[in-house]
Computed example of a mutant assay.
Amino acid sequence: MTQAVTGNVIAHELRRRIAALGHVSVAAFMELALGAYYAERDPLGARGDFTTAPEVSQMFGEMIGLWCVDLWSRMGKPQPFILAELGPGRGTLMADALRAARVSPDFLAAAELHLVEINATLIAVQKAALQGFRPQWHKSFDTLPPGPMILVANEFWDALPIHQFVMTKAGWQERVVALKDDVFVFGEANPGSERILLRPEHGKATLGEIAEISPAGLRLAAALGRRFARAPGAALIIDYGTMQSGLGDSLQAVKQHRYHDPLIDPGCADLTAHVDFAALAAVAREAGASTHGPKTQGAFLQELGIGLRTQTLKAKSDAATCAEIDAALERLIGADGMGSLFKVLVIASPDAPQPAGL
């Protein structure tokens, strides 16, 4: 399907690059579009483009907070330690997590809060949500300070750029974005060096099937693996994706809570792709870390006790609020929604204790 190119700044920059190079990779298209998309806007909530689990219910962040307290205790209660989040959104998850963590004052006293965020608008919102915890902000994972660390990343990896490869009669070709009659279209080109990252499971592809890899996602998982190989800690990764590497085109765009053609209005819609959790776990282990999971979000939250938390909240609520709590729970753990689509993976130090829920 082809769509007309709009006159936005990102579209003009993509045109310029395509005119010079003939095409750009899907990863380059995503990187440019998402860089503009996430630069300043608040994409969350009813007035935005999508809703994440922390915005569905306070229970989600509360479970994550109790998970962090439990892991910190199992780690021997290091003091101080880095409590980090990648892509904190409005700070809702961390605010709920820290509220739940009040059951352990020692945890709160030891935690040094660090947030990785590039969006100036969201940083302002995070400052308001997390005032009192003295957070420090970073533009990348690489600048987080050394030491014991517990890191949370909810719906972060799905927005990292992917390369797509198409199986043709001549073998793998890279799927690219080109221009035809001033319209952005998908095309094919000789694959670049990223092809070496294709996994054995991708070799089962038949004619026309698509394989996806995220070098950026793999690099970050490897960086976590290297860090945890030399310092205690763990990263809790929650995102939508697959437990096993496979085939298929998962690139999608969302705008105003509706599916949107990814080639229309680049920079004005959210672009995402499914996370390959098996690939993340493999590179983290190769870097020296241990991994736990992946497991479905529904099973993870139920094992952490979200059902009991639901009953506690309902005991203090009227009938209408109880119905809202039940609906939120179903959305978080239901087999036909987030509960099965979203997966949970922990990357940890080789000698780290078994994390709860996994």
Rank of each mutant, 00 (worst) to 15 (best):
P80E: 12
I196C: 08
T92H: 06
R331Q: 12
A273K: 07
L108A: 13
I118Y: 03
F184K: 07
G293I: 04
H257R: 10
I162R: 13
A129I: 07
F342G: 08
T272V: 07
V346H: 04
D270N: 12
S140C: 09
G334T: 11
T321M: 14
G65M: 05
G76T: 03
I150P: 02
D239S: 09
P43H: 07
L160S: 05
V152H: 02
V344C: 03
I82P: 03
A159M: 00
R226M: 15
R285Y: 06
T296I: 00
Q302G: 02
L197W: 05
P294N: 09
S73R: 15
I150A: 05
A33N: 05
A205K: 03
R90Y: 00
R199E: 07
K139L: 05
G7D: 15
F29D: 12
N190I: 01
G132N: 14
I325M: 03
K204F: 00
L220I: 14
P105Y: 10
A222M: 05
L313T: 05
R41P: 04
Q131I: 11
Y240P: 06
T272M: 04
Q173F: 01
G132A: 14
P80R: 09
R227M: 04
T312V: 09
A278R: 04
E212V: 01
E286V: 08
E324W: 03
E194M: 07
A327Y: 09
L304A: 05
L251I: 05
A159T: 07
A323D: 11
E85V: 10
R331S: 09
Q244V: 15
Q256V: 03
G48D: 10
Y37V: 04
A109S: 15
Q297T: 13
G246D: 10
N8F: 00
R219K: 13
I237N: 00
P161T: 01
L341V: 10
H114E: 06
E212M: 06
V24D: 06
L71N: 05
G87E: 00
T206C: 08
E55L: 13
R134G: 08
W172T: 06
F107P: 10
V56T: 13
T310M: 11
G217A: 06
K169H: 10
E330C: 03
G22F: 02
M63S: 11
D142W: 03
